[in-house]
Amino acid sequence: MTIVSMSKAAAIEIISWTYEPPYSMYNLENVPEQIEELLNGNYYAYPCPDGTVYGFFCYGHDAQVPGGQKNGVYKSDALDIGVGMNPTFTGQGYGQSFFQAGLSYGRETFKPNRFRLSVNRSNQRAINLYRKCNFATVDRFNNPGPPKAEFLLMEEM
């Protein structure tokens, strides 16, 4: 599979994804503004051979959480990465290879010194994955919403 620029068809598919609790906080709104954001040039789709979107990545400012921006936690020169996996494929052991694909693409495309990400503190499954991929918590912050939650700021070590 190859990571490609986000298409309108992929964006429409992504906003239709429905995650079950406790991951439902990651459900996107089915509104034109959400499609516009996904098509702003900072989002990339990871399509399956049959055309289904396996997941997506975003890099830079769009991968940051507003509460972290407000609290000034994005200080280092690391490149922020955001990820979203199709809920059909979550919880089946595919996360590490999926995340590594996004890191590889980001390294080739943007040449960062290292990566940084923000993760909801309640998403232990993702936190464990990021730790396996050599990320460590460097800060915490509260996001006023949505989603209203505590987030961990993790950086690649």
Rank of each mutant, 00 (worst) to 15 (best):
K8A: 14
A9C: 09
A10G: 12
A11M: 11
I14M: 06
S16N: 14
P22R: 12
L28F: 07
P32L: 09
E36Y: 01
E36S: 12
E37F: 08
L39G: 06
N40C: 13
N40P: 08
G41A: 11
N42Q: 13
A45V: 14
C48F: 05
Y54L: 14
F56P: 00
Y59W: 02
G60S: 10
D62N: 07
Q69G: 03
N71C: 14
V73A: 11
V73L: 08
Y74T: 08
I81A: 09
V83L: 15
M85N: 04
P87C: 11
P87S: 10
T88M: 14
G91F: 11
G91H: 09
Q92T: 12
Q92M: 12
G93K: 02
Y94F: 14
Q96W: 00
S97P: 00
S97C: 05
Q100A: 09
A101T: 03
S104D: 15
G106W: 03
E108W: 05
T109I: 06
P112V: 11
L117I: 10
L117G: 01
R121D: 15
N128P: 00
Y130C: 01
K132N: 13
N134F: 08
N134T: 10
F135D: 05
A136R: 02
T137A: 03
V138C: 03
D139T: 00
N143M: 09
P146Y: 02
A149F: 00
A149D: 15
F151L: 04
F151I: 06
F151A: 01
L152Q: 06
L153I: 01
